[in-house]
Every structure is written in C-alpha cells, then in structure tokens.
C-alpha cells in the first residue's frame, strides 16, 4: 500500500513519485507538483479538509480527495 500526500502529518515531507488519477494529475503538474518534487504538509484546515502544502517554492491548498491522488515515497 503506497502512501499519498494526504497521509502526511503536519510538518512531514515526502517526494512525489506518481499519481492515481490522470485528469487531476495534469492540473497538479501544472501547479508544480511534479514527480521528484518534495511536498510538505503545512497544516490542515480546522475541519480537517482542505490541506495546505508547500511545494515548488510556494503554498498550495488541496482537498483531501485531491491530495490522495499524489503518491509519495
């Protein structure tokens, strides 16, 4: 079972290795979530969702369902 970006803990980082869904991966790649890039979970919204990440030198917020498409190692 591989981990996804939504499994990270606040402050924890992972390296992107792929995606689960094709369509959303195109958008995520445009936004700088590329394979090999480090993605760090910053903090979660008070209701647990969405999540704020640090990636490619800026902050990006994703819903859990979106972050779950980013596979990390």
């Amino acid at each position: 079972m591989s981990r996804s970006a939504s499994d990270l803990k606040p402050g924890e980082a992972g390296i992107i290795k792929g995606y689960q869904d094709n369509v959303i991966s195109l958008k995520l790649m445009e936004m700088g979530c590329l394979p090999g890039e480090t993605i760090k979970l910053n903090f979660r919204a008070p209701l647990g969702d969405p999540i704020s990440f640090d990636v490619a030198g800026y902050s990006l917020s994703l819903r859990i369902s979106e972050a779950a498409n980013i596979l990390i190692e």
Partner: peptide
C-alpha cells in the same frame, strides 16, 4: 463533473 479545489495560498 468532478469538483476541484486546488488553490494557491499567496503570501
């Protein structure tokens, strides 16, 4: 249609 969020958090 799928709902997307994907939003930049500016400084």
């Amino acid at each position: 249609e799928k709902s997307y969020f994907i939003m930049e958090m500016p400084l």
